[in-house]
Design a protein around this nucleic acid. Sequence first.
DNA 1: ATGTCCACTAGGAGTGGA
Length: 263
Amino acid sequence: MRLVTWNVNSLTARLDFVLDFLAARAPDIVCLQELKLTDDAFPHLAFEQAGFRALTHGQAQWNGVGVLVRRDVDPEPKIVATGLPGHESMGARLITVRAAGLSVTSAYVPNGKTLEHPDYQAKVAWLRGLDDYVERRVERGDAAIVAGDFNVVPEDIDSWDPAGHAGDIFHTAAEREGLSRLKDLGFVDLFRDKHPDLQAFSWWDYRAGAFHKRQGLRIDLVYGTERVRSRVRDASIDRDFRKKREGRTPSDHAPVIIDLEDT
DNA sequence: ATGTCCACTAGGAGTGGA
């Protein structure tokens, strides 16, 4: 089974790009972030024709998360919950579904903007809320994943310039604390677990040629419980889908791919 | 290099967000 998380930076702008990815990489479950459209506007027909069911929690203009499930692996995936209780003012950023015997959560952590901006405190609080949510609502003895755009660099190896950005947004101890609590709850960063010393980024700024200069961050993460971790065969980040394709603009994030042994 | 891309409003280019 192939699991993916991908911040697409507007599904409307990226639809052809995403459909190309589904055809080329044949994932089974895809956690999406930054749909930037309402649930009513979601292009369900295109995904049904590609063989996927989409479960979404969207809003107009910003944010929005979803999970695509290949019909072959589960014809009837179910929404378990949407939204982070107490943090609704930050927008539509969380959905948990039950699909193919897995608990699957797609999360889009607030960016935070700058350390001085009120959104930074809201980001840290949102992460704490996510940890509480996972602790209370996700069956951790189960096969479960929590995947998405965390907007946090877990460790120095995950930043192109950790010294230059020490203590900066995405790199602070308070943000990283939100990730370490997930670890304490039994969730493992599946990419890092598979590749302890490999530097690989999932996001590059559109500006200044950052992608070509390899100035990126690994902020798109897939956390899994032991029952998932024990099945991981490979973990990779698909840089090819951060490149322009047939003149079409990519997202500023690349898909993260986790391959599991079938049960 | 605050260098790009996206949505929205508006009816063309500016604004806010990432």
